[in-house]
Write a protein that binds this DNA or RNA. Structure first.
Lengths: 206, 206
DNA sequence: GTCTATAATGCGATAGAC
DNA sequence: GTCTATCGCATTATAGAC
């Protein structure tokens, strides 16, 4: 994947403070634009317009469209990682934290739209974010597999539930629910449906 | 959604036989091109190139890019409907037929890619296929809800499984598995994972 | 750090000849 | 029914002024 140089000094009062603030607002706009139109159809022009600067000005901060996408994805993952305590509470805790995350997710439709559109269009190997998504899915399913294996070892997994298959299913369920939710936000409750699914897998429910 | 006039006489030996054959090959190519790049990024130029004619020639048969997409979607649904006996065997039969369909689906990655990319990008209301997908999801979840309700009435649904939520989950699972399968076809078996999920919902398994 | 200007390409769609 | 030619517009990216 294409990368972009970032200033070494990152503090809000460092020598690149202004530049950093500009980068942030570019990333915000990129999230919106790519979220609405996907990466391929979303245009740098649209991002520049929304952030209130020229395309050339934008390209001073991110050397190419792909570099901008990479930065958006990386920032989003950092934020998510920082926000949730994945490591607390063992397998059951991990599943509960996931439900919380999905619940929180419903407050940022733009982000959901971005990841939804992007993960679909990035299935093609030639897509600039293909490698990123491949690795992300591997990491995520491995995380859930570990959680289910932990539950299984304690005898808290329902009979017949296979950790690897169940982990793929959980990830798939979240992805698929996002589509239905985006199509009709009023009649789909992603967190509730996920919780119901998980409760069916764990002895005694979630 | 934008529509396109089709000749009234549709038989292979009718007066429009040649035109009909041309239309078919255009639809085939469109399926491939839109499948690889999505609708927004796939180009009429690419479709025309693959079918071996000019853009203008293509636009003689389908008056716009959206009209072409509409025709592709409609034809695909016709084919699917014709191929599977959804109405046989009650609720359990419907679920089994779905597993068969998914198994069959794995032999046409291009089609999977098209629907995957398209259903994601069509979540935006301004997309030409938005209405089509909205209705399609409503129909599909209603179908599964009916199947689960039938099973529930016979006491064959596992305790705690709610038909409406379960139907959303089944559709979501299929969509999500498609993404993972497209990313890594060797390590994901969509039909097997779906069967495992469904077996967990029905008393005595599928 | 941001701008204008521009290059080079690709797009969907139309007009009109054959 | 298919073509060539073309319009008008959007796109990513670069060069160079300020």
């Amino acid at each position: 994947m294409v990368t972009d140089q970032t200033p070494v000094r990152r503090g809000p009062r460092g020598p690149y403070a202004k530049s950093r603030r500009t980068r942030q607002s570019i990333l915000d706009s990129a999230l919106t634009v790519f979220g609405e139109s996907g990466f391929r159809s979303g245009s740098l022009r649209g991002v520049a317009e929304q952030v209130g600067m020229s395309e050339a000005g934008l390209l001073h901060h991110f050397s190419s469209k792909s570099a901008l996408l990479a930065a958006v994805l990386e920032r989003r993952d950092e934020q998510t990682r920082a926000q949730f305590g994945w490591d607390d509470g063992g397998g059951r805790g991990a599943l509960r934290a996931t439900v919380d995350l999905v619940e929180h997710t419903a407050s940022t439709p733009g982000v959901v739209e971005l990841f939804c559109t992007l993960s679909a269009e990035a299935t093609t190997p030639s897509h600039p974010a293909h490698a990123w998504f491949t690795e992300r899915y591997a990491t995520t399913t491995a995380f859930f597999r570990a959680a289910f294996e932990e539950l299984s070892a304690r005898g808290e997994l329902r009979e017949g539930v296979e950790p690897a298959a169940a982990s793929r299913a959980v990830v798939a369920l979240m992805d698929g629910l996002q589509i239905q939710w985006l199509l009709d936000r009023d009649s789909v409750d992603m967190a509730a449906d996920l919780r119901a699914h998980l409760s069916g897998l764990v002895v005694g429910g979630l």
